[in-house]
Design a protein around this nucleic acid. Structure first.
Lengths: 351, 351
DNA sequence: CAGTTTATTTTGATCGATCTAATCATGCCT
DNA sequence: AGGCATGATTAGATCGATCAAAATAAACTG
């Protein structure tokens, strides 16, 4: 261990009192410039670093941000949170915060963890991911006046109250861009593989596709299938959609998992994937185009065109919102701020 | 925020002194059983939780474990660290520790972060990943007597000194199992796709393959190719190896990235992948079998047989080693403990 | 130039826990 | 009964920072 350097050591070396050292560091404007320099030199020389625990005792601020790390459920989409976490750690560090991890199996367990953490480590704020309808967690945090930001919009019906800060990626804008990309490539009958309606994220993404298709004069009705997330599920649903005689030549998918399944389906025998079949006119003899969502490593590996979320940016915005909350910059009258980012289309072989 | 409950509140309710409350919680054996019960009841009733900052000030222990979160370099293998991190967070929590994240771009930056963190948050220990030859970090930590464990063996020449605790997965055992699996399936000429020699991990994995093949009476010489990690690299190397007239019918790969490339190569025109070619005896007309390493989501998605690392277990062992280090259980005379775990083969379509 | 205001620095108390050492009970032995 | 370990509990000091308020120095005002 490095020998401990306290504020008293610095004070002694600089020939001032402890409080002046504290002021030089935290309220530079109340200290005479010359003194400040002297203190800073002493700090430098001794390699002094403020002890968070001691500071926290007095100020009640820990400079910790807590976030839950989820077991990578599907696995395929797991890396999204991972990348977000990396961005969060980096942005937080830049603002003088550190990231504390915890796990929880469900909402209730997470709320219990809130109590534990707040009692023991007193994190200054939480970042919540995977927000959903009627989220217990946001209610609890609001109720206890604990600062937090969610990565994900509040999907609940009472979102009108817009009661907390959030950052999200505009899924609809993403699928709209994907659909436009396909239209530009000459596709007309573009299908959608999504999740059962009810999940905010899924519905939002479907909406972008439907809106864009309709704007191009194609009725989206009947061109959409809903299934749970998973490669096999995606393959089945894609099969179903492609086998119908609607003439679907391209698919926009709500996730890379489903898109991967769709790719399998598209290339399986009996379906459109027959590059050299010959004439016939129209898009029919081209391979079925597929676009996924999240730009996971899998997408890159198999050449799947996909929508990439600006996760590092999202994380940076989360930290920015939190710091304004914590530094009391936030106007109590103002409604909480929020940020909506656009995903970008990463074009690969699949579309 | 929840109203703060301090040890004094508990003491008052239980009708004892602060110190007795502290003893009841930390040294139950010095307190009379009846008193202990009374205290615990008070703790329960008030929902008391010890304040880490205050405790840390007195004891110098933060109950924090710090670990670096890496930017998922290749992406495809990134989820390995992610899963390890989840396991670590869970195991740590079970032992009363929390996980603190940080980032760093290189070894030197990481050492700087050590200083920062130790000065400010005083984590009790570090967990290092991606250990490599002549690691600056381990040297620094040893030098400053900061407790740590590495997930990964010390590969340096001076490992003879076995100077720190570590947990690792036995790569050679994994590739040996994979090779045996292929031999059992009737393959004889089994190739290996690896990284350039010099990386401990890569050499270790190659060794397991070579040893097993030799034991089966097949000379591994010339059956191995080395390349940097990446799908395209893997495809090129696999092509090269398969095109040679050595009669390679199966490939063991050092990573899923390379294996994925190998799969592409194996299925490209002109090579062995011709499922229904008909009779002819021997392994030749079977598709080239491929086995990867790490069992990433990609492997699952594309049906790649792969070696799965017991990451949750590895994380649990890391925590276990740390707690013995920290609780002073470790015998100063004894060399640091270490654990070597076996990966398991997840069999899918590719082999 | 006394009387204030303003700028700068210092002293003492405090956050909530644990450590050390002292105090108060008990039981046991001779 | 006195002397003494042993057991159980408590009072006071302490960790390292910041807050609040006091003290000192410098500047200004009429």
């Amino acid at each position: 261990m490095t020998e401990k350097v306290t504020i008293a050591d610095v004070a002694r070396l600089a020939g001032v009192s402890r409080q002046t050292v504290s002021n030089a560091l935290n309220s530079p404007d109340v200290v005479r410039e010359e003194t400040r320099q002297r203190v800073l030199r002493a700090v430098e020389e001794l390699g002094y670093r403020v002890n968070q625990a001691a500071r926290q005792m007095r100020t009640g601020r820990s400079r910790l941000i807590a976030i839950r790390i989820e077991p990578d459920r599907d696995g395929i989409n797991g890396s999204v949170l991972d990348r977000f976490l990396h961005g969060l750690t980096e942005s937080a560090a830049r603002s003088g915060y550190r990231v504390l991890l915890y796990t929880a199996d469900d909402d209730q367990a997470e709320v219990d963890t809130f109590e534990d953490l707040l009692g023991a480590y007193e994190p200054d704020a939480f970042v919540l991911t995977s927000t959903h309808h009627g989220d217990l967690r946001t209610a609890w945090l609001l109720d206890h006046k604990v600062p937090f930001v969610t990565f994900g919009r509040p999907w609940s019906a009472d979102s009108a109250s817009a009661s907390h800060a959030w950052v999200d990626v505009d899924g609809a804008a993403g699928t709209a861009a994907a659909t436009r990309h396909l239209l530009d490539a000459g596709h007309r009958v573009i299908g959608f593989l999504g999740w059962p309606s009810g999940s905010g994220v899924g519905d939002d993404r479907r909406e972008g596709w439907a809106r864009t298709l309709a704007a191009a004069g194609v009725d989206p009705a009947g061109l959409s299938r809903a299934t749970s997330d998973g490669v096999a599920d995606g393959e089945k649903a894609a099969h179903d959609l492609l086998r119908s005689d609607l003439g679907v030549t391209a698919l926009v998918c709500v996730s890379d998992s489903l898109a991967l399944g769709a790719l399998h389906a598209a290339r399986s025998p009996g379906l459109a994937w027959q590059p050299g079949r010959g004439p016939g006119g129209g898009a029919a003899e081209r391979p079925v185009a597929v676009i996924g969502f999240d730009d996971t490593p899998v997408a890159k590996a198999v050449g799947l065109t996909s929508l990439s979320q600006p996760l590092a940016q999202a994380a940076a915005h989360c930290v920015a919102l939190l710091t304004t909350l914590l530094d009391g910059q936030a106007d109590p009258g103002e409604p909480p701020a929020n940020v909506l980012l656009e995903p970008s289309l990463v074009v690969r072989q699949s579309a």
